[in-house]
Nucleic acid binder design. Structure first.
Lengths: 342, 342
DNA sequence: CTCCCGATTGTTATCGATAACATCAATTTA
DNA sequence: TAAATTGATGTTATCGATAACAATCGGGAG
C-alpha cells in the first residue's frame, strides 16, 4: 500500500521530460523569472504527466524561507481557542501559508517542548496563546528565534512582536461595574484551574480589586483539579450556595461553567436574575441560543485570530515598518434575552 | 526584533566548539550510534552553550523520513472534529510526532488543495476526515502518495489504509429502532448541509430506509445554506412544527441543532418527550450537562482519534504487518436524565 | 558591420542535515 | 603474536530544491 510509487518524481525527472534544465522547471513551477510561454507550457505538461509534487522541505531549506506558521494554543477542543484558530486560518491559508498546531494544555513544559519542535521546522512565524506562565526554556527559545512571534488572546504582547486579544483586566472591571451598578453586594466568583490560566486569573483579580475599590468583598470558589467546564461549574455553584446561601451575584470563569451553574440554580429553584445575577465570559454560541438568562462578555474570537494573522503577514511583507505592537479587542457585555426560562 | 541573531547555529558551529566532526554531533543529538560518554557530554554542552536548535527541514530531507502527520478535518471549531483531533494528538505527540491541521470546510476543492500542500511536506502519514466527496484531484494525489493514509470519523476506509469511526448507517438504524420501539409514527428529521456532509446524509438515509421497512414515512426539514448549529436547529424546528404540528418524534443531525430545536419546543409549550420525542447525535458535553430531555447517540470521539493514530503508528513501525483495515466505534443511545426542565 | 541590450535558459555552489561506509586504536581470541 | 572483533569517530556523497550569476541569441543603435 505504502510503497506504490517506486521512485519519487523530482525536478530532475520533469526537467528531463520537458528537455530543459532543473532551474527552468523550478522557475515555471514557482511562477518567477521570465520563461517563454512555449517552454512554460511544455514544463507544465511534463510535470502534470509525471504527477510531480514539489518537495517543500527541500524548497524551504534552500531558500531559507517557509510558508508554515506555528500556532500553540492551550486546547484544541476548547471552542474559544479553536475559534481564534479558525480566524488565523481564514487569513493565512488564502495567503498561501499553512498552520500547524500544538496543544499545550496550559503546561509550560509542554509549551517549551512545542516551541522547540516547531521552531525546528523554521516557520515563517509563531503564534502563541497568552495567559500562561512561560518557562525559562521558552523564553530562551523565543529570544533566539529568527521569526516574528505574536501573542494571541491577550492584548499585551509580553515582549513578543505583537499581541491581539482582549484586556482581561478590563473584562474584570466591566463585570464589577455591572454588579455595582445594580447595587449588588454579596458577590461571588466561580472558576477552575486559575493557576494555569493567567488570563482568567487576571480577570478574577481585576474583578476583586474593582470591587474592593467600592469596599465590596468577593467570595471565590475555585478548584485547580477540575476542568473549566459545565460540570465543574455546576458542582462549584452547588458548593457555593451551600456555604453562602445569600449570594446575590456570581461571575463565572467562562460561559460553559456558567451554564453548569445556571442549571444548578434552576433546579434548586433559585431565580436568575431575580435572586442571583449571573455573568459568564466569552459569548459562545450554545448558551446564547438556548436563551438563558446568562449575561456574558462577548469576545470577538475569530477577529482576534484574523488580526493576529494579518499582523504577522504585515511583518513578513514589510519587515521595515514597525506596526503598532498590539490590538485590544472590544468587549461587549451582552444580556441574554429576557425569557424567564433557561 | 526579528533579526537578532546574525547567524543561525548549525551542526558545524557545534562541531567546531566541541572539537569533533559534524557527524558525531548529529549522532549525539539524535542519541544513535555509539559515542563515548565524555564526548557526548562535551557535545551536549557545546550545543547548549550555543543554543543549538536542529533544523528539521534539513534532517527530514536528508533522511527521507519525517515526524509530521497531516490531518484534514472539515472544521476546527466544530467540537466533534476537534475532539477527534485531540485524541489524535494525545497519541501522536508522546511518540514524537507533530500534527498539522487543515480545515476543508467540507469543500472538495479545498480538500484537494490541502492534500497537495500537505503531501509536499513529506508527512509520515495523512489523516483525512471521511464524510465528504473526494475530488478526482484528491484521488489522484492519494493514489500516488508515499505515506499511509487513514480515514477518520467513518469506519469505512474508502480505499485508504484504515478507517476509524462509527458506522453512520448503524446510527440511523439505531434511531429508527428507538422510535419504532416506542410506537411513534409521525417522525421527522431536521438537518443542514446534507449535500456536503455525507456522514450525516448516510445517517439520514439509513433512518429513512429503516423506517420505510416498517412502513413508516419520514418528514425532513433541511437547509443547505445554514450552518449545522443550534440557531439553525431552532429555526427549522419552528418551520417543521408549523407545517406538521402533529409530529411525534424528531431526529436532529447533531446535538447542537437538537438543542436549538429543544429550545423552540420548550418555548412553544410542547412537552418533550411527552408530545415530541427528540434524538440528537454525538453526546457532546454541554447539552448533557444542562440536563435536557435530549436523547442522543454518544460517539467516542477521542477514542476514534486515538485509534486512528495508533493504527498509523503501527503501520509506520511494522510496515510488513497487515492490520485490520478498519475500526468501528461503538455507539450508545443515551437518554438525558429525567428532569422535566431542560 | 560591430556592439550592447534584454529576454531566455543554464551552471555552480549552497541550504543543514543524514546514510553508508571507512578508519583507527584498543581489546580479545586463537 | 597475528588475526579478528569492538567501540569511537571521521569522510564522502547525497536529499531536492533555490540563489546568484553566467551564457546565449536575435535585433536595433551607432
Amino acid at each position: 500500500m505504502r510503497q506504490k510509487r517506486a521512485k519519487t518524481v523530482t525536478l530532475v525527472e520533469v526537467a528531463a521530460r520537458a528537455d530543459v534544465s532543473r532551474m527552468t522547471v523550478s522557475k515555471v513551477i514557482r511562477g518567477v523569472g521570465s520563461i517563454s510561454e512555449e517552454t512554460r507550457a511544455r514544463v507544465r505538461r511534463a510535470a502534470d504527466e509525471l504527477g510531480y509534487l514539489p518537495n517543500s522541505l527541500a524548497g524551504s531549506l534552500s531558500s531559507r524561507k517557509s510558508r508554515m506558521v506555528a500556532v500553540i494554543i492551550p486546547s484544541i477542543s476548547d471552542i474559544v481557542f479553536s475559534e481564534v484558530l479558525s480566524g488565523v486560518n481564514a487569513v493565512l491559508r488564502p495567503n498561501g501559508y499553512q498552520t500547524f498546531i500544538g496543544e499545550s494544555h496550559f503546561d509550560p513544559v509542554v509549551e517549551a517542548d512545542l516551541i522547540r519542535e516547531m521552531l525546528s521546522f523554521q516557520p515563517a512565524g509563531l503564534l502563541l496563546n497568552g495567559g500562561m506562565e512561560r518557562s525559562a526554556a521558552s523564553m530562551r527559545l523565543l529570544e533566539n528565534r529568527s521569526c516574528p512571534a505574536i501573542q494571541l488572546w491577550d492584548c499585551d504582547n509580553s515582549g513578543l512582536d505583537f499581541g491581539a486579544g482582549p484586556s482581561h483586566a478590563e473584562a474584570g472591571r466591566l463585570v464589577a461595574m455591572h454588579f455595582l451598578a445594580r447595587g449588588l453586594q454579596r458577590i461571588a466568583y466561580v472558576g477552575a484551574e486559575l493557576e494555569k490560566d493567567l488570563c482568567a486569573r487576571r480577570r478574577y483579580l481585576s474583578l476583586q480589586s474593582s470591587l474592593a475599590a467600592a469596599d465590596i468583598g468577593l467570595v471565590s470558589v475555585t478548584c485547580e483539579r477540575k476542568p473549566r467546564q459545565a460540570a465543574t461549574g455546576r458542582l462549584l455553584t452547588e458548593q457555593l450556595m451551600r456555604t453562602h446561601p445569600d449570594v446575590q451575584a456570581i461571575h463565572f470563569l467562562n460561559d460553559a461553567m456558567a451554564l453548569g451553574g445556571l442549571s444548578y440554580l434552576h433546579e434548586a429553584g433559585i431565580a436568575v436574575p431575580g435572586q442571583v445575577s449571573v455573568v459568564g465570559f466569552n459569548g459562545t454560541s450554545i448558551p446564547n441560543t438556548v436563551r438563558t438568562r446568562l449575561t456574558t462578555i462577548d469576545t470577538p474570537r475569530e477577529a482576534i485570530g484574523e488580526t493576529a494573522a494579518r499582523a504577522l503577514l504585515d511583518m513578513l511583507r514589510n519587515a521595515n515598518v514597525n506596526p503598532s505592537r498590539s490590538w485590544q479587542a472590544a468587549l461587549h457585555l451582552v444580556q441574554g434575552n429576557t425569557t424567564e426560562k433557561f
